[in-house]
Nucleic acid binder design. Sequence first.
DNA 1: ATGGTCTCCGATAGAAATAGTCGGCGACTG
DNA 2: CAGTCGCCGACTATTTCTATCGGAGACCAT
Lengths: 151, 151
Amino acid sequence: MLKLSKKTDYALMAVQYMSEKGADRVVNTKEIAEEYNIPGELLAKVLQKLGKKGLIVSQNGPKGGYLLAKSPADISVLSVIQAIEGHVGITECYHNEDSTCMQMPRCNIRTPLRNIQNSIYGLLDSMSIAEMKEFGSATIVPQSRLYGHRT
Amino acid sequence: MLKLSKKTDYALMAVQYMSEKGADRVVNTKEIAEEYNIPGELLAKVLQKLGKKGLIVSQNGPKGGYLLAKSPADISVLSVIQAIEGHVGITECYHNEDSTCMQMPRCNIRTPLRNIQNSIYGLLDSMSIAEMKEFGSATIVPQSRLYGHRT
DNA sequence: ATGGTCTCCGATAGAAATAGTCGGCGACTG
DNA sequence: CAGTCGCCGACTATTTCTATCGGAGACCAT
Ligand code: FES
Ligand code: FES
């Protein structure tokens, strides 16, 4: 729990991959799928979603494929995650209207959890794909990434 | 995704509740279940798990129930979460042996994600139940909670 | 000691989210 | 105009989560 779905993993891998290949190189689904042993059809759906969210740009026809829509430094990890998972809530009932949560009236963890959630968002949002790559080699995670959740 | 399970919610509520009631007051399952509209049997299991992990102490017999094992300031939010969810990994394959992950050989997001995960752990670990309660009223989340994951 | 209250535990059923598949359509290149 | 590749929706299978049940054991009060 507190776990990213496989689809999200795939999305991050794909974006990383594209960022490694450079801005001009069009990569297609099959290429990525084979590189990482991902079921092709599933990855296809993931990439389509990323495309719809404007994170990557598609190019049809033979020799077609995908391209990052912006510089890796301008793509936040959070945006990728949200593109795939949609609404992300650390708990079922982040302050939301149509929540059928039975414990709302007396809930004593709503606001605290929401704060924690915002902190996590802040961290994820402040980290770009480009940075993530660096952290792959380094073992250090930057400080002061907590407060200040943008979206 | 990135979501706490209901059981964990219940666990946090219950611990919060006990912390509110004070150290000497024995509370039983039914009491908490009614307070928050939680299915009793399920909550029972949750509390049993917390007991097994040594976070709370059980007391059998009539007038029995549960008690916090330590001061609310010494119980980290992370410990409660882990008690219920067991191993918590932001991704399937946090550096782990028996992972059957097909993309390991080439995975480009393992280490970065692991760092992010550690950051989140650090935040969760550094926050105690007592603190969480305060953050319920305040809307601010403390800075510099990132690096420095204990466990 | 006995009955009622409460924790403890394993098994199980039902519901929901995830992972992965399939088939057809449309766009583009050569 | 044929092959390649993205686009899309429906579908199935698998796993995880939620909740329930039934019975055993501990304890206190009377
Ligand atoms: S769990 Fe739903 S409001 Fe707190
Ligand atoms: S997703 Fe399994 S190793 Fe990266």
